[in-house]
Each structure stands twice: as structure tokens, then as C-alpha cells.
């Protein structure tokens, strides 16, 4: 996904950012289903939506649900205008799948402000975002899930250092963010101190269930569809049809989770289902392309497909890492079945 502030602002002028936010905060009072349709079409078209994506998807709903009135007024209209971009501050160098072990600390000072120290990592677009919602430990005596809170960190504050991390394809879209005695105002806290774990978990339902969890390889699928030609042989048809059938199933599941989110439910289990299957599907699209690549008639389309395959293949391992690894999701799913 490309990062293009001009595109994000234009999209906002069209009324397609902050769709589900209330009008009083610059939103459009639209339903989650309307937002789903817009999200899907943007992803399917390969639009450069990454600037506003996280703010629109999860930061704004989080602030709307848990934030103070002053936070809503400060952040939501700017998000809905496509002008303010957020990143996610969850993982740390020593806290990956074991998120409850986060050590970044925000200590409350006598003047009510917070002193932030620690390090977040794998933070997508941190170098180009305005703010991060970070999961931090606010009770120094606490352990594990207790004593965690979420704070909004404006990334241009003194003491914030952002260092890009190069991925296996050579791209630098994720970062390490270091906090060195960063002073946050008293109102940086989102929601309730000590409730950070529950807040972050419900935030993840937005992150795990949307169409981006199964559309990352759609461009490759589109290319293959064209490259096999109008009259595919039986093997090509089976492979193409299989990708189509599972895409239909994943959309049905994702729309059902959207319905639960719209109804105010917290579909963590169902969202984990979508992500586990969806990321597996995206990776399977790469496998399918590899099985078919030699069978494609030698055309410009076949050459394009090879290039798209190479790009998608380079990203594919991250599909089942970002937003919760496959193994962690499956643990959540098993617990949801009552197995402990």
C-alpha cells in the first residue's frame, strides 16, 4: 500500500475517511458496512491509502470509544480530514507475541504529566505519522496484563527517535521508535489507566477482521486471472477457481464480523478466524502462482505476473506476522473453544 498524503486528503474531501465517526467530529455517521465497501474498493484498486489507514481503521474508533472529549475534538476531525496519521505502538524488541510483557514505561509525575521511556518496534510508517497510540506500563509494580495503559504520543516531541528498519525486500516502511524521557501532557492517557490490555485487545478486532487481511495478494490473483487467458486448461481453471471460492468465503466471514462490530459486539474470536484464514489464503495465492507460472502462455501479461509474484512473495512471510502471529491467533482460537 502506498503512502500518499495528497491522496488521503482528496479521499477525505470525497467524504471517504472517518466514515463511521459522528458528524460532530468531522465524520459522516456512516455504518460499518458502508466503511467496509469503501475499504474493499480502495484495496481492490490498489489505492495508496496507507497514510490514513491505521488512524481511520483503529485509532479513531479507539479514541471515540475510550477517549476524553478534548481528545475527540483534537484528533478526530483531523483524522477525518485525512490530515492526521497514526501508527500502532504495541510490539517491543523483547515483546513480540508475548505482548503482555511490554516494558515501555509512562510514569506519572507530580505535576500530573507522564514521563515516557522505552522502545517500540516494527512500527509501520512511524517516520511519516503524526502520532502513535502506545501500549505502556503505567503501574511500575505491575506485571503482565495488569497495569498497562494506552497513551497518545505526538511523534515530534523531544526525546522521540525514529529509526527505519529495512525488510527482506529492501523497503523501509517499518521502524524502531525510542522514547527517551519524553514528557507527555496529563491528557495523553486514552481511556482508563490499567485498562490498556482490554482496550488494545478490542482495538485488534478492527485490525484483524477487515478486508486488508485477505486482499494483500489480490493484485497477483488479478494478474493470474488474465495470464491464464480466456480458455484455461483444467488445472489452471481449478487453481483460479479455488482462489475465487476462498475469497468469496473470506468476504462472507469478514462481512459477518463487520456486522458484529457494528452491533457493538467484541468479536475477537471471529476476527482471529478471519485473520488466520485470510493470511493463509494470501500466502496460498503465492503458492498457486508458483504452481501455475510455467503454464502461462508467454505474453506481456506473464512477464507482469512474474514481477508481481516476486513482490508478493517478498511480502508474504509478514502476512501471518503483523497484527498477531498465526500461532498466537490459533492459541486465542483454541481458548475460545474452551480448551485451556
Amino acid at each position: 500500500m502506498g503512502f500518499d498524503p495528497e491522496f488521503s486528503r482528496a479521499l477525505a474531501r470525497q467524504g471517504w475517511v472517518g466514515l463511521t465517526l459522528p458528524k460532530q467530529y468531522g465524520g459522516h455517521d456512516a455504518t460499518s458496512f458502508e466503511r467496509f465497501v469503501v475499504s474493499e474498493e480502495l484495496l481492490a484498486a490498489g489505492a495508496p491509502v496507507s497514510a490514513h489507514w491505521i488512524a481511520d481503521r483503529q485509532s479513531a474508533p479507539l479514541i471515540l470509544r475510550h477517549g476524553a472529549e478534548s481528545q475527540k475534538q483534537r484528533y478526530l476531525p483531523a483524522i477525518a480530514a485525512g490530515e492526521m496519521y497514526f501508527c500502532i505502538g504495541m510490539s517491543e524488541p523483547d515483546s513480540g507475541s508475548d505482548l503482555a510483557s511490554v516494558r515501555t514505561r509512562a510514569d506519572r509525575q507530580s505535576d500530573g504529566r507522564w514521563r515516557l521511556n522505552g522502545r517500540k518496534v516494527w512500527t509501520t510508517n512511524a517516520d511519516r505519522c503524526h502520532a502513535m497510540i502506545a501500549l505502556v506500563r503505567t503501574d511500575p509494580a505491575s506485571e503482565r496484563h495488569a497495569g498497562l495503559s494506552q497513551v497518545i504520543v505526538d511523534l515530534d516531541l523531544p526525546g522521540v527517535t525514529i529509526r527505519p528498519i529495512r525488510d527482506i525486500s529492501g523497503h523501509e516502511h517499518f521502524n524502531e521508535v525510542t522514547f527517551d524521557d519524553v514528557i507527555l501532557e496529563a491528557d495523553a492517557l486514552v481511556g482508563t489507566a490499567g485498562e490498556g490490555w482490554a482496550q488494545a485487545t478490542s482495538e485488534l478486532a478492527f485490525e484483524r477482521s477487515g478486508p486488508e487481511r485477505f486482499l494483500s495478494a489480490l493484485t497477483l490473483f488479478r494478474c493470474l486471472t488474465e495470464a491464464v487467458g480466456r480458455s484455461p486448461d483444467a488445472r489452471q481453471a481449478v487453481e483460479i477457481g479455488r482462489l475465487g471460492a476462498w475469497l468469496v468465503a473470506l468476504r462472507a466471514m469478514s462481512i459477518s464480523v463487520t456486522g458484529q462490530l457494528a452491533g457493538g459486539q467484541d468479536p475477537v474470536w471471529a476476527a482471529s478466524c478471519v485473520k488466520d484464514l485470510g493470511t493463509g489464503y494470501e500466502q496460498d495465492t503465492v503458492e498457486t502462482a508458483i504452481r501455475l507460472i510455467d503454464s502461462l502462455p508467454e505474453t506481456d501479461q506473464a512477464r507482469t505476473t512474474r514481477r508481481v509474484l516476486a513482490v508478493t512473495q517478498g511480502m508474504a512471510p509478514s502476512f501471518s506476522l503483523r497484527g498477531g502471529t498465526r500461532e498466537i491467533l490459533r492459541g486465542i482460537l483454541a481458548r475460545g473453544l474452551g480448551v485451556r
Partner: peptide, 23 residues
């Protein structure tokens, strides 16, 4: 068998027909 039949329709729709076909 069902994948094959579906696949023939999708291939016939081509690159730009895929997403409308799915939705």
C-alpha cells in the same frame, strides 16, 4: 469440480472482471 467451473468463469471475466465477479 466446482473450482474448475468457477475458474473458467473467472478466467473468462479477465483481470478487470475479477473483482466485480467476486463482489
Amino acid at each position: 469440480r466446482w473450482s474448475e467451473r468457477l475458474g473458467r468463469l473467472i478466467a473468462d471475466a479477465g483481470e478487470d472482471g475479477l473483482w466485480p465477479f467476486i463482489t
